[in-house]
Design a protein around this nucleic acid. Sequence first.
DNA 1: CTCAACCACTTGTGCGGACGAGTGGCGACT
DNA 2: AGTCGCCACTCGTCCGCACAAGTGGTTGAG
Lengths: 238, 238
Amino acid sequence: MSMDFAPPKYAQVMRAIQERIESGEYAPGDMLPSETQLVRELGVGRTTVVRALQTLAMQGWIEREHGRGSFVKGRPESEAENVRPGLTAAEQGESADSLIEVTRVPASRHVARLLGVAERTPVIVRKRVARQADLVSAVETVWIPLEIAVGTDLEKAEPLRGGIRRHLQAVKHLRFDHITERLSARKPTKDEADLLGSSNPVLGVTATVHDPAGNVLLAMSLVLPGSLHELEDVYKVR
Amino acid sequence: MSMDFAPPKYAQVMRAIQERIESGEYAPGDMLPSETQLVRELGVGRTTVVRALQTLAMQGWIEREHGRGSFVKGRPESEAENVRPGLTAAEQGESADSLIEVTRVPASRHVARLLGVAERTPVIVRKRVARQADLVSAVETVWIPLEIAVGTDLEKAEPLRGGIRRHLQAVKHLRFDHITERLSARKPTKDEADLLGSSNPVLGVTATVHDPAGNVLLAMSLVLPGSLHELEDVYKVR
DNA sequence: CTCAACCACTTGTGCGGACGAGTGGCGACT
DNA sequence: AGTCGCCACTCGTCCGCACAAGTGGTTGAG
């Protein structure tokens, strides 16, 4: 029995309009067909059309003006283009040659604060390097509280091919809700300089991953060579 | 004739629920009254209640689970807490002791690329320092194309007390739509080190401000001492 | 005791209709 | 020529209803 789900109609309407915008049929600045016209053309109720149009407006595809009509703005520059180093690190799969060490150590003052546990509580540490074209592009250290890691492969010294996020989701149903990152520029430590092959300034990113209730699931430190254009961010102004 | 507008009902419903969450009447984890109950209690249609609840869910106040109910998550950590150096710089008012220089120079290759103009096109440069508790906390350089600056006070060597954004909005109706930032860690140049009073690594932020059509209104370079916790970012995971 | 059917409750989606309010064009009146 | 009012059209909001679908407790057959 193949149970295939049809997406809801308002989503279908959104898709249809998005495709017409991307194909150029509706060019930026053009007025869209009125709600009534779309109702007739697509054979759905106005409720559905309105919901689709309002959602598109929220996402930045179109602009709606009371009394005038809806107008094409263009494909929104998706915020997904932003670089999210913490998320990237948590999703990236590990490989044998990138994983440096997996140990259990007492939490330092700093790590304990990040994780919200008592100092010297044992935590799992996974350390690895990320490479791009044979060059080390980041040194990543992840700290995981024992109660999170128990029952998972996080303490095993084998590479997690699917990445940490996927593993925690699959094995323990832990959901990532949001990530906090703090950023600084500094000189690399000796270890970091060795791994990166340079002692030029680095970007240091400290990230904590939270579940929907705000509890810290794990903490990370990312060390990126500071060269140029490492991180890009696009945001809308109010 | 005092024409006062009542906010739409769905907004009133949202407000009511937000207030109950903030007052603690609805605690995090609690189940909200069902849609039907809210309909009866607030005397509005279900359409209205549903719209309010779905909007609250999008904004992160609550979570809705099909077949179970709606549950309080808490006041959403507004993304407004994120540090947006480019936006801050464009909105901050200038003062006499922070403004260093206002000149007109031919655009360097780098600046020309940012602004999307030909190399050596004359542009306005405004340079200033930001201070926190008498310490220089940033060195900011702004480049403005002549056609943007014409008719404004941007080329005058007097501090813009209201900030650049407000000035451009008031004088030329230019709307800021989004800002692109690129980030790097590097050693400060000699000039920058002198101003900052240190030659420790710095965070370099290159930002461009765009109008709704995507045109570049101005470009900025921000140099921040790299110490620690300079920039913080919180983002939701899918 | 076990388990499946059932039921009451929840949210998700969809419809048609209604009225309000903003916009712009056209024509009639001044 | 200018201006005013009307009207057709747009989107904004709201309602009541209907049915689908997910969840969890109760009930009754085995």
